[in-house]
Design a protein around this nucleic acid. Sequence first.
DNA 1: CGGTGGACCTGCTGGC
DNA 2: TGCCAGCAGGTCCACC
Length: 273
Amino acid sequence: MPELPEAETVARALRKVLPGRAITQVEVRSPKLRTSLEPLKTAGLEGRRITAVRRRGRYVVLALEDGRGLLMHLGMSGVVRVESPEVPRRRHEHVLLHLDSGLCFRFEDPRRFGALECLPLNADGLPSALDFLGPEPLSEAFDGAYLFRASRKRRTPAKVFLMDNEVVTGVGNIYATESLFAAGVSPRRAAGRLTRAQCEALASAVKAILARAIEAGGTTIADFQGVDGTEGQFTRELRIYGREGQPCPACGTRLKAVQLGGRTSCYCPRCQK
DNA sequence: CGGTGGACCTGCTGGC
DNA sequence: TGCCAGCAGGTCCACC
């Protein structure tokens, strides 16, 4: 799944059903995701009440009444559902949190790149493990001036720069690709060579595209689902992601693809400079 | 320090 | 038809 709009979609759905609920039983069915799941078994979560659901970047935090929180990341293929414990366990459902509402929070993740850990929360209500993250892209702290400042002397490609969680958090391959296209910036351009105007255009594009994607409930390529099983509707609004070889929607030029930072990056060689 | 490449996983697909 | 290399929304670490 999961870039910021998908994490936000999940967080909003969980906010409707989790706050106020107590965890009655923890069911751990795999030894580890990205990190070991063993500590969850002995974390003493039974009886603890969930007080709030927060999102930071691609992470979702389920705050507990005791000052700790469950830090969750959906990796590449994570899906969360809240449904009856009677529904048969799926193949890659690794953690189930039974709730006093009679429902069950279920974390499914075939590739196991996701994470679920219980950690103490700081004054901001977040685990300090997230302190390294850069600004939220939809916050005022993220704008053209910030991008321009942060990119000086960086030789890394603009796309890799935009996907760096320390620069701005939550922008992954899909939304970086779409934002660069919307801003008319080549994904290969050295970050330090971006003009002030390009930084303004990029920041605006990131904000507009993420906001629109959140409205649409995220993007589903293969496996992202909302908590209620629905697919993200932003998929139909993607303009170039995954379309290498096809004509540019703006000028008709054949879209190209390059590998940048190990990720496929589709772009229009004519529209993006 | 900044930048790159591989590792971590399973599942699907496109090309032979 | 069937097989398998390659690729997939992310992060982290070792290495230059």
